[in-house]
């Protein structure tokens, strides 16, 4: 984000700005002065305390519960890793995991391809680019509980696309994935890609606009064709965006919940369950709190494995995040 005012250039070079605590004023006597000196910490303290409790404290709580035999209500008797071993014996959990792998892989892959394609195509001095961008991205602004209402209808064999195409004179046309055990998960992919690929487009378009135009000119003068310039020079130069997009999509996939609830409800049966719906089911409907907690921790572990290396490299690399 850039400031419009040219006078806001940060001081260049000299040792002043680079030093932490550089704007710390002097201390003076008295209680008020002590408060003044620590104001910065005092201001951040409530938020930090809330995060400590509601994020890290609650993670600890969930970890603790997962080592108990809690059923409908939390119990605080530790019984070891029983819940975890139970979890990994539940067939439904394996379905959820397998679904997550299928769903996550396809969702991330297809979203990236469509997003990058749209970004590159939109970058060709397109008339009405603004309007198209708005159209591609609006699903991100809407809850999937809302748009899922339409998707459910579209995918419903009796009244949606299948019927529509049959009415056009193709009575044998079949598109009933949403009611079939082994294909229901693919309808999640269709809807999720629809929802998130515009976001990938926005990420890449912003990155494309940040690429140094001199490089493009140089490549063009060297005789490279436009596809070659994109494939060989532009896309490799925005590699970090692939990383960001992957991390965000992956963590969206792990957290996917609304989508399943609105579209398939996890059905038919539990054929399209994902870990998030599994956890909700176990915790709030089947009174298996310990197992629910264990499954939530599995989700957390997955997200941490994706996010922490990423955040670490981002925070360490640039000072900006």
């Amino acid at each position: 984000m850039t400031m419009q005012t040219p006078s806001l250039r940060p001081a260049a070079g000299e040792d002043a700005g680079a030093v932490p605590g550089s704007a710390t004023p002097q201390k003076a006597g008295g209680l008020r002065a002590v408060a003044q000196r620590h104001l910065s910490k005092l201001v951040v303290a409530p938020s930090f305390a809330a995060i400590l409790l509601f994020v890290y404290g609650f993670i600890a709580w969930t970890v603790y519960i997962s080592f108990t035999n809690s059923k409908m209500l939390p119990s605080y008797d530790l019984v070891g890793a029983e819940a975890f071993s139970k979890l990994w014996r539940i067939e439904r959990w394996y379905v959820a995991i397998e679904n997550l792998l299928i769903f996550g892989g396809l969702f991330i892959g297809i979203s990236l391809v469509i997003g990058i394609l749209l970004a590159v195509l939109l970058d060709q001095r397109i008339r009405g680019e603004g309007a198209l961008r708005t159209i591609y991205l609006y699903p991100m602004a809407l809850s999937f509980i809302v748009t899922g209402t339409a998707w459910k209808w579209i995918l419903n064999p009796g009244i949606g696309i299948q019927q529509f195409v049959r009415d056009l004179g193709f009575p044998a046309f079949t598109f009933d994935w949403i009611v079939q055990q082994d294909t229901a998960v693919y309808t999640l992919v269709i809807a999720a890609v629809w929802q998130s690929s515009g976001f990938v487009m926005a990420l890449f378009l912003a990155a494309l606009r940040g690429v140094d135009q001199e490089i493009i000119k140089a490549a063009y003068l060297d005789g490279a064709s436009l596809p070659r310039i994109y494939w060989g020079i532009v896309l490799p130069s925005i590699r970090p965006v692939f990383m960001s997009a992957f991390v965000i999509l992956a963590h969206l996939a792990v957290k996917s919940y609304d989508l399943v609830v609105a579209l398939t409800g996890g059905g038919p049966g539990y054929a399209s369950d994902l870990p998030a719906t599994f956890m909700y089911e176990m915790t709030f409907r089947r009174n298996q709190i310990a197992i629910g907690s264990a499954s939530a921790l599995m989700m957390l572990a997955t997200v941490v494995a994706i996010i922490v290396p990423y955040l670490y490299s981002e925070l360490k690399g640039g000072k900006r995040v």
Partner: peptide
């Protein structure tokens, strides 16, 4: 916290 899967904190 922005990446936290909500499922972890639902019960607590």
């Amino acid at each position: 916290g922005s990446f936290l899967p909500s499922q972890v904190i639902l019960l607590p």
